[in-house]
Nucleic acid binder design. Structure first.
Lengths: 232, 232
DNA sequence: ACAAAAATCTTGGCATGGCTAAACTTCTTT
DNA sequence: AAAGAAGTTTAGCCATGCCAAGATTTTTGT
């Protein structure tokens, strides 16, 4: 759990991390239910925990209205995320752990990594800025390079971009994509896009693939700004 | 925590490990108090926990008479010890963590290492058989190479042996010995030994040092069997 | 040798963190 | 304004720890 308050338990770190991701994904206060679903626990538990987190000022919770991280809470979240992504890279790179399994492992280790070990790992990896999923790694000062990406399934026919990462909670998807020889960094162009969450035909470095709507929703794409500008 | 029963919590692992070391050090059932002191908790807590461990058959506890590990309990202990020692070596070797700090780090990580990661680390290190303290690492099949050692302070004047390791819970001692340029593998001979836990004069590879009783008690020595045989 | 004192061990009551299930409250929506 | 969704509260469980009081074993002093 590294240094810090005694209140800094694993559950607390998980809540901060969850709220951080949900908040930055939605851009608005996070609902109790959203947190509950993400952490796979009941809304009741979340409600109780939010009260405690509010007391130690990691979050601001307006009952019935949602929850936001304070600066302190954001710091906790970013530390954990930094741990997580450094670990993923370390496991994949230094120990050759398969790409689709590093996430689960990092999920546990992230809470237990000391500051010292974090520093040693970061040094060993040459202070990297992205993990094997393509997710940016917060700096030691907890600054996160925000590259605004879009879900692949939000692109329209003809748009091009670079596949940056996939929601790393989905080992199935990782495996599947690896099987198709698709990995972060690949350039792509949408050839066809059926409506209503239907499949997309996409060309990756010349290879064509048809990807289901669910998959396309989890895949994040860095869209070439020359093609389409200022889409938030 | 790796795979296994849901009952396999960190506390359970710590109890098994503590009982294992105490038991193999003393060669007889372990007292409640000994466990309590080792884990730095009260005897009352230990007493309660022993009942639970008995129920899941990790130990056999005869009230007022001490506790012994079952085969199952021994397996748990050896797994944790294997994790611990592999981690120590890994941290020291692969990440250049200072020798006197690897213990504390491993103490936490040992409970969280998956079987898969354990295997990767073991492979990376070339399936080593001893950690940086000189302690033997149990094999993947949980066999422990038992080299019977004796505490340095149990040697009498004139006895020779090889300094094998030091109780790894003592970073102070590790640092101190490192400062004297004493490390596992050094041959030694006892030149003088004051009674009542007093200091020893010991020659290490020609260099003479005076070591306090406490220190000498923590240092384990592989005594040349030609000099003194069958001392249990 | 044997009772009293000391050390050791167990029991029982209590706290805390985190969870669940179910009942209840507030908000939203029609 | 009433139904239904979303959120909160309440009561209770489990793991793990603590302390204080009572039980047992060992040591000691005569």
């Amino acid at each position: 759990m590294a240094a810090g308050d005694s209140t800094r338990t694993q559950a607390v770190e998980d809540y901060c991390k969850a709220i951080f991701t949900l908040e930055s994904r939605a851009g608005e206060p996070v609902s109790t239910n959203a947190v509950a679903e993400r952490l796979q626990i009941t809304a009741g538990s979340v409600s109780a925990m939010l009260r405690k987190l509010g007391e130690v000022e990691l979050i601001v919770h307006v009952p019935y209205r949602g929850v936001t991280l304070t600066a302190k809470g954001r710091r906790v979240a970013l530390e954990v995320i930094r741990h997580h992504r450094l670990l993923e890279l370390f496991l994949a790179e230094t120990l050759q752990m398969p790409w689709d399994r590093v996430h689960a492992e990092a999920e546990v280790l992230e809470h237990v990594l000391s500051e010292e070990l974090e520093a040693l790992i970061a040094a060993k990896l040459g202070h990297p800025t992205a993990d094997p999923h393509g997710d940016p790694i917060p700096s030691a000062e907890l600054e996160l390079a925000e590259t605004p990406t879009r879900a692949l399934d939000s692109l329209t026919v003809g748009e091009r971009g670079v596949f940056v990462r996939v929601s790393d909670s989905e080992p199935e998807m990782l495996r599947y994509l690896a099987g198709l020889d698709i990995s972060p960094g690949d350039a792509l162009e949408v050839l066809e896009h059926q409506p209503f969450g239907g499949p997309l035909r996409v060309s990756f470095d010349g290879q064509e693939h048809t990807l289901g709507g669910g998959l396309a929703r989890a895949m994040r794409v860095d869209v070439k700004s020359s093609v389409r500008e200022g889409v938030a």
